[in-house]
C-alpha cells in the first residue's frame, strides 16, 4: 500500500514538473515571438493618414517635367500623377526615415503600372545619396549605392531586360534578368 502511495506521489510530482517546464517554455516562446515582432519590421507603409508624409514617405524631384507621388485614400496607396500636364513626368518616392540592418534586408511591396514607363526602379538606396531627377539604378547615378528591380530603363533594361541590378556607387550592373512576369493594370504585382 505504501509503495502504491509512494508511486502516486512520484507521478504527481512528475506531472507538476512537466506543467512547470511547459509553462516556462511557453514564457520563452512568447518572449521570443515578442522579440521577433518588435524587431521584425523596419518600415511598414500605412496609407490611411492625411498625406504621404503621414505614411513616412516623400515625393522628391518631379522637377520642371512635373510628376508627383501623393496619397490616394481611395486605393490606400502612394500614387504617381503628372502634376503640370507636361510630358516626360517623373519623381522619386523615398522613405523619410532610413534603416540599418547588419543581417541584411527583405523588401516586400506591391505595385501597379498603368502603362509601360520610360524608366522605373524599386529598391533600397544608401540614405546618404542626394537624390537627383534621374533613375538612381537604371541611370547608374553616382553615389546611389543600392540594389533593386529595374524593369524599365536605359542601359540595364532597354525596356525588355527587367533586371535586378546593383549600383555600387559608381555604376550599375545586372544581377539577373530572370523575372519577367510584369504587366500593366490589375492585378497588382507583388515584388518580394
Amino acid at each position: 500500500m505504501k509503495t502504491k502511495q509512494w508511486m502516486m506521489a512520484v507521478m504527481v510530482r512528475r506531472d507538476k514538473m512537466k506543467r512547470s517546464i511547459i509553462s516556462m517554455l511557453s514564457v520563452v516562446v512568447v518572449l521570443s515571438l515578442t522579440a521577433v515582432t518588435q524587431g521584425g519590421v523596419l518600415y511598414q507603409s500605412d496609407f490611411t493618414g492625411a498625406d504621404l508624409a503621414s505614411a513616412g514617405l516623400e515625393s522628391v524631384l518631379g522637377g520642371t517635367s512635373g510628376g508627383e507621388w501623393t496619397l490616394n485614400t481611395g486605393t490606400d496607396s502612394a500614387e504617381f500623377n503628372d502634376s503640370n500636364n507636361a510630358v516626360n513626368s517623373r519623381a522619386n518616392i523615398v522613405t523619410t526615415s532610413s534603416f540599418q540592418s547588419t543581417s541584411g534586408f527583405t523588401l516586400d511591396t506591391e505595385f501597379l503600372l498603368t502603362a509601360e514607363p520610360f524608366r522605373f526602379s524599386i529598391g533600397i538606396v544608401d540614405a546618404a545619396y542626394t537624390l537627383v531627377a534621374k533613375d538612381w539604378l537604371g541611370n547608374s547615378v553616382a553615389g546611389a549605392y543600392g540594389i533593386g528591380f529595374n524593369p524599365y530603363g536605359d542601359a540595364l533594361s532597354n525596356d525588355d531586360g527587367k533586371t535586378l541590378a546593383f549600383n555600387n556607387g559608381t555604376v550599375s550592373s545586372v544581377l539577373s534578368s530572370d523575372q519577367t512576369a510584369i504587366g500593366f493594370w490589375a492585378p497588382r504585382k507583388p515584388f518580394r
Binding site: D76, S77, A78, F105, T114, R119, G123, D126, K134
Partner: peptide
C-alpha cells in the same frame, strides 16, 4: 550603411499622362 526605400518612375516624351495612376499599395 543606412538605407531608404526608393522608387523612381518616369513617363515618356509623348504622353503627359502615360503612367498616371501607377501606385504602390
Amino acid at each position: 550603411k543606412d538605407y531608404k526605400f526608393i522608387s523612381y518612375i518616369q513617363g515618356n516624351n509623348l504622353d503627359a499622362t502615360q503612367v498616371d495612376g501607377s501606385y504602390f499599395s
